[in-house]
């Protein structure tokens, strides 16, 4: 917090944040001020993933770079869309199984579910 100009800068990227922002709208990081055991941490909470709640609203999941604790912060309307896309697409870009064999794998494991719903409801 800059007392002279009344602005606050993001500790991670230096973006000028508004007073009411819970996280930086540019890099989606925030400062880990207090852990769940009410210790002061001071690490930077970095965004790792997105979570869609039951009512359709989003929360950004963050992980502290210092203590590793997870936190959730609601998505703000001015959040950087490219960062949000990156967070959402990262698991798809790096899947743990070959995507062209996902149906075969599921059948081998005796599970149900299929990818056929994209074109029409099976």
């Amino acid at each position: 917090m800059d007392l002279e100009t009344g602005t606050r800068r993001c500790f991670s990227c230096g973006f000028e944040m508004a007073e009411e922002d819970a996280h930086c709208p540019n890099c989606l990081c925030s400062l880990h001020e207090e852990t769940q055991e009410e210790w002061e941490c001071g690490g930077i909470l970095q965004p790792i993933s997105l979570w869609v709640k039951d009512d359709g609203s989003w929360e950004i999941l963050q992980k502290c770079s210092l203590c590793g604790e997870l936190a959730a912060t609601p998505r703000a309307p001015r959040d950087n869309p490219l960062k949000l896309l990156q967070l959402a697409a990262r698991p798809l870009a790096d899947p743990p199984f070959p995507l062209e064999r996902i149906g075969e794998m599921t059948r081998l494991m005796g599970g149900s579910g299929s990818t056929e719903g994209y074109y029409d409801e099976p």
């Binding site: 869609v52 989003w58 869309p81 949000l84 959402a88 149900s112 990818t115």
Partner: peptide, 25 residues
């Protein structure tokens, strides 16, 4: 041995709703 379809469904959830507006993109 986690269910691959379940994992994929979780990963696709942000794209399924109105979160990314097509007009905005």
């Amino acid at each position: 041995d986690d269910h691959p379809m379940k994992l994929m469904a979780l990963a696709l959830r942000p794209f399924a709703g109105e979160g990314f507006s097509r007009e905005g993109l």
